[in-house]
Design a binder for these strands. Structure first.
Lengths: 140, 140
DNA sequence: GGCGTTATTGCGAATCAGTTGCATTTGTGT
DNA sequence: ACACAAATGCAACTGATTCGCAATAACGCC
């Protein structure tokens, strides 16, 4: 009910496209590209237009329900919102994105609060490298 | 001469478009969008095609001469390469990007090296918030 | 539960950053 | 200077996202 509550609280309507997009995002838990989301949405309801999916993603982002990331060179990806201190590890070999919780983000936030004259709102950390699966695969 | 040396070392030629793009990037020091770079290049030499600018930026990125960042929702920006521990503070009000050196990145790198099974190559930190100028401006 | 209002949708056209194929030009080693 | 590959300029193309607008469907109200 998080979705409906958030929509109502911000004076928006609960519509079919919004419900379906929300279901798609929550059912995978992964990072999805807009194209993947559109495809999954069509699987559930081919009648939903891709413009509506884009509009819905934009709205969800405004409401902090989802998070848009530009993790790679390609198109951006979307996922259900999570705290800043969960950062992204992007494997440059297989493209997989995993989450990693760290206190380094909080440390940085504290540091910024004390030392600099910049007021930090959001911190986004992206680590590129090689995931364990690909490291293993390299030893063949 | 960093440019010519790097190009030669990687078996590439020193051409006019490459020199001009390099000059543009180095003369501002700021983050520039591809469109801004194209405009600045045209200022110096209207004969240089924008495809060449794009190709040049791609090459420079491959050679680690420049760094491409997707700091905002808009198109990506380019800047002369700098170490990972210099992070980006992006003001969401005025859009200005500033640099900030921190040891938090090294701390994170150490942490990842020890605790996780992910081999980190590059770490990219983007902080969104409000810059000092805009904070001051809000007190009017 | 119907009814009117108005947000939201579906549609197709438009936009826009970036890419590509190819003929022509230009560096570079000899 | 010459030859040959690399790089450029051009123009057409791509693919993701956005936009305007008429049609539709939530939601508040009676």
């Amino acid at each position: 009910m998080l979705l409906e509550a958030t929509l109502r609280a911000s004076d928006h309507r609960m519509t079919r496209p919004r419900r379906v997009v929300w279901d798609v995002l929550n059912s995978t838990g992964r990072h999805l590209s807009a194209a993947e989301i559109v495809a999954a949405v069509h699987e559930l309801d081919p009648g939903i237009n891709s413009s509506s999916v884009y509009r819905t993603l934009g709205l969800f982002a405004d409401l902090d329900l989802v998070r848009e990331s530009r993790l790679t060179d390609e198109a951006s990806t979307w996922e259900v919102a999570h705290p800043d201190d969960v950062i992204h590890l992007v494997c440059s070999l297989c493209g997989a994105t995993t989450h990693h919780a760290t206190d380094a983000v909080d440390a940085l936030r504290t540091q910024l609060g004390a030392g600099s004259d910049f007021h930090a709102a959001g911190i986004d950390v992206r680590v590129t490298g090689t995931c364990s699966t690909c490291i293993t695969r390299l030893h063949d």
